[in-house]
């Protein structure tokens, strides 16, 4: 009996360790990023690093200002949200409330496919279709620009926005809608004036999730944004926080200030993501409490 108890305790212990692995991973990632991100910030100076307008890591007198990357990431994400959210939102309302079962199943499968397409495939198509089209239409020397990245990101966040919004809209109690219909509102009015406000936390969560995905995307953006460390402008070649890390990591030598600065950029990106996660949790929790 005693041996049995011991055995059960050991099993319990093993499962406890397995359960704590996720926590350990988060701690490990956080600690590693902070440890490797701090030295360069110390050397460059926090203010110069965050608000310096020039990034020239390989120049004779290297400059490490990441304001262009921060602004590009912010603008790029904002642009993607501005385009992606309305499209995703209306599509979600249609799929959740209007579409019949078959249409919904087919389009939902399509949306799932969109979510599953690897980001390099988006990058490839963006590079060969979108970039030349932008060059032609807007008559700019190179189509690889912030604008191209915004479009690609908008498409990439679309499935997240649609799926999360649909879940939120599906969860709206039918009674709300019935009451509104009984009071003489048309179905369309009911969907937008009753169902959508009732699902607003979930839809907000969808938007925040989209922000997180857009700000964290690297490969697709790397292939269409041109990758020059300019201050952001719509038809200019730009670099995001993610692509700044990715594009120089391969040739920076370990231990150099350049590589350390890349880790600092990653730390800044990580802080952005943590902030977004906290916001997301806020919305999700509010949804649950209701």
């Amino acid at each position: 009996m005693k041996r049995n108890r011991l055995f059960e305790n050991i099993v319990h212990g093993i499962f406890l360790i397995l359960g704590l692995i996720t926590v350990g991973c988060v701690l490990l990632i956080t600690v590693y990023l902070i440890i490797s991100g701090i030295p360069a910030i110390k050397e460059i100076g926090l203010f110069n690093f965050l608000f310096g307008k020039e990034w020239a890591s390989t120049a004779a007198e290297p400059k490490y200002g990441i304001l262009p990357f921060i602004l590009t990431s912010v603008y790029g994400t904002a642009g993607a949200i501005l385009i992606g959210v309305p499209i995703g939102f209306f599509a979600a309302v249609y799929l959740s409330k209007v579409a019949n079962k078959k249409v919904r199943a087919v389009i939902e499968a399509a949306v799932n496919l969109l979510a599953g397409i690897p980001s390099v495939v988006y990058g490839l198509v963006g590079m060969l279709v979108l970039v030349p089209v932008i060059r032609e239409i807007f008559n700019v020397p190179d189509g690889a620009s912030l604008f191209a990245a915004i479009i690609v990101l908008a498409i990439m966040i679309l499935p997240n926005i649609i799926k999360v919004s649909i879940t939120a809209l599906d969860a709206v109690p039918k009674e709300y809608e019935d009451a509104s219909l009984a009071l003489g509102a048309t179905p369309t009015e009911t969907f937008f004036k009753v169902s959508v406000p009732a699902a607003k936390s979930g839809i907000a969560a969808a938007v925040v999730l989209g922000v997180g995905r857009a700000i964290g995307e690297a490969m697709a953006v790397m292939m269409v944004a041109g990758n020059v460390a300019n201050m952001p402008s719509l038809f200019e070649s730009v670099r995001f926080l993610t692509t700044a890390v990715a594009s120089e990591m391969a040739y920076s030598s370990p231990g150099s200030l350049q590589r350390n600065a890349l880790f600092s950029i990653a730390l800044v990106l990580f802080l952005f993501i943590m902030l977004i996660n906290a916001t997301l949790n806020f919305f999700l929790k509010r949804d649950k409490e209701k």
């Binding site: 996720t22 964290g216 990580f270 977004i276 997301l280 949790n281």
Partner: peptide, 18 residues
């Protein structure tokens, strides 16, 4: 633990790479 799992799924892949 659940919060940690959510955090992990929100971290972008480039950071995992680093």
């Amino acid at each position: 633990i659940e919060y940690a799992a959510e955090t992990l799924s929100g971290i972008p892949s480039i950071i995992y790479g680093l």
